[in-house]
Design a protein around this nucleic acid. Sequence first.
DNA 1: CCGATGAGGGGACCCAGTACCGCGTGAGGG
DNA 2: CCCTCACGCGGTACTGGGTCCCCTCATCGG
Lengths: 236, 236
Amino acid sequence: MSSPSKPPMRDALVEAAFRLFLERGYEQTTVEDIVTLAGVGRRSFFRYFPSKEGVVFPDHERRLAEVTGFLAAGGEGEDPVARVCEAVRLVLRLYTDNPVFSVQRYRLTKEVPGLRAYELSVVWRYERTFAGHLRERLADRPDGALRADVIAAAVVAAHNNVLRSWLRSGGEGDAGAAADRALAYVREAFGDGAGRGDERDEDVVVVVSRRGAPMWRVVREIESALGPGERFPDRP
Amino acid sequence: MSSPSKPPMRDALVEAAFRLFLERGYEQTTVEDIVTLAGVGRRSFFRYFPSKEGVVFPDHERRLAEVTGFLAAGGEGEDPVARVCEAVRLVLRLYTDNPVFSVQRYRLTKEVPGLRAYELSVVWRYERTFAGHLRERLADRPDGALRADVIAAAVVAAHNNVLRSWLRSGGEGDAGAAADRALAYVREAFGDGAGRGDERDEDVVVVVSRRGAPMWRVVREIESALGPGERFPDRP
DNA sequence: CCGATGAGGGGACCCAGTACCGCGTGAGGG
DNA sequence: CCCTCACGCGGTACTGGGTCCCCTCATCGG
């Protein structure tokens, strides 16, 4: 195992840190204060957390690894967008499984700019993981990388929207159901997956926007969109 | 004016900072080194930039203010998504107007995690500005806030995708045109923005996605998209 | 009994960021 | 002409996050 039973010292540090952060504020608490309360050496703090901000998000590193594994374990024929949506539900669960802790942390990150920045970088790593997964599966599509990036960002934004309003409510309500609704909106927006490759019946998708143009211009635009040499044949 | 003529000292600091960053690396350069090269006091550095990272993104603060003003100046009847897309084009121009500087900075941010985090927080502020604008205009829609957040994230992601590939290419190619394509994809995904704008020059926009379908099916789809009774006439 | 290993502690150090003060300069008023 | 007040700038010292190096000590295998 890579994580052979949680060291109790780590938990003691998180415990002590949050006690002090909530009591006197994040910036008014030094690492020295934390390790003193926890009864350990200052050096040990940085053995377990990369920075003072890191102690506020103690579980994300592991969850990121789990998410990566979850995506890699997906079957080949599966809808990658659906897979990513399930993965983001895993992330949401990291919050909803510990409502009190998450709400406390939310109150901190809302106030302290440094913590917001740190959280952004954490979320960014999730998003890049999702985008990477989608990029691989959408590589053969036109603008596959663009689609992957946009869809990943939309999924994360939907997750964040649901999470934030759940946190603002103090951890009340069914965040999971709200996430399902939000993610359904996203998937619908992208044609239920500009990613949903071959399970769609239609093998043709056409979008036409016409604003009083003569029809021959419409035809010309379509032909140029189709590429050189393509012309409209007669119908059977 | 709120910015009464650029202080030359500020530019000298940026100049000196980038010279050293590119020469010996970001983390190997101290603020002391920068101010020594620029021939000013250490204290002055922090008068002009909030942090060492700040000197790498010297223009974003002003551009953010401009974007905020641009969005606020938008007419009421306008498509808010279109407005946001124009705003993000403003952000892109901040990069494309100075290709060499942007590419140099890109090489830095790519390597240094601290700079990536800082850039994330900068981008986040743009995104929240966009989302705030959309939230106001979509407030009456069901799930208005969700849509606003997701669309803002998608727009930013499209921008980032275009920007990154332009930066990776060393500043070659027409990033503006690529951005138009990418943003068109986003607007298409969201129903062309829940209300299209008519400020575009072209009176015809056609997007065709073909996946090995027979041409007559393409034609049929287009005709059905055009509405009942519409048929393709002969070209002149 | 001894050497190796690894977790933890201690102290020195670097540097970003801040607070405070002191200096020159330049404009305006007596 | 001088005084002074404001202001841009510099210098110094301090706090605190983060790193490095070395020490201790416990455990374990030989």
